Simulated scan of single mutants.
Amino acid sequence: MTYDPTGRLLLTPVDREASVRAQRLRRLGLGQHPDPVFDAFARRLAEATGAPYSLVNFIDENRQFFAGLHTPAGTHSGSDLSAVAAACGINRVMARDHGYCPHVVARRKALVLEDVCDYPRFAGNPVVDEIGIRSYLGAPLIDRTDTALGAVCVVDTVPRQWGLAGLATIKAAAAELVAQIHHREDGGI
């Protein structure tokens, strides 16, 4: 963990695998461009969980990149996460100290936050105040080389009861996406 000068616990965990992950992502050609297949995957995951927002997130040494992104279509009000995120300069790229996927990747375990405000460690994350995130459900994308490439997640601007079914869904989605990545690597489409 890192700390700021005022002594507040910051949310970004130390990531000792960042350089190995970045090399693996480059070899796979992931984490640099939006991918329509990953966008479709994020849409299906949002539908499966009933969440308005879903991400396929690859994390390198310096940033997070949403290669797959689903937001509610046609809404651009102040409550629309994509509009707020774009206004904050986030869009498909986000700093490593924002959000919860860096925790999922560093811990290599799924993370369920039904209300991020219930957890002091997570409530102070910039995505709470800047974007309005209130709930998070994510799982790591661990490939055949035992590299945590990133995470797949769903988020909402209201507290959500994800429960065991949500946890099972996000873990299954991560496994499915890793299988798709392996298929690509092996020469499949």
Rank of each mutant, 00 (worst) to 15 (best):
A46I: 02
P36C: 05
V56G: 02
V84E: 05
E114D: 11
G188E: 10
S19I: 08
Q161N: 12
R96E: 03
H98W: 06
N91P: 05
D4G: 15
V93F: 06
A179Q: 15
A48E: 02
G7F: 09
D143Q: 08
P36A: 13
R16M: 00
L30Q: 13
A165R: 08
G163W: 07
G188W: 03
P34V: 15
L9M: 15
A165V: 15
I189T: 06
A173M: 10
E185G: 08
G124L: 04
I133R: 02
L11E: 01
S135P: 02
L141M: 13
L69M: 10
C153Y: 01
A175Y: 03
Y136H: 14
A87L: 08
S19C: 13
H76V: 13
A179K: 10
F122G: 03
R26S: 04
A87C: 04
D115S: 14
L149G: 01
A95M: 12
R27E: 15
G74M: 15
W162K: 01
I189Y: 00
T169V: 03
L141E: 01
H183I: 08
G99F: 01
H70Y: 13
P36G: 12
G7W: 03
E130P: 01
M94Q: 06
S54T: 03
D118C: 07
A106W: 14
L55V: 09
G187I: 10
S135N: 06
M1T: 14
A73N: 11
A95I: 07
D143T: 06
G150L: 01
A148R: 02
A179R: 13
L10D: 14
Q32K: 13
T169I: 04
D186A: 09
V158T: 14
Q180I: 15
I90K: 07
F65A: 06
G99T: 04
H182Y: 12
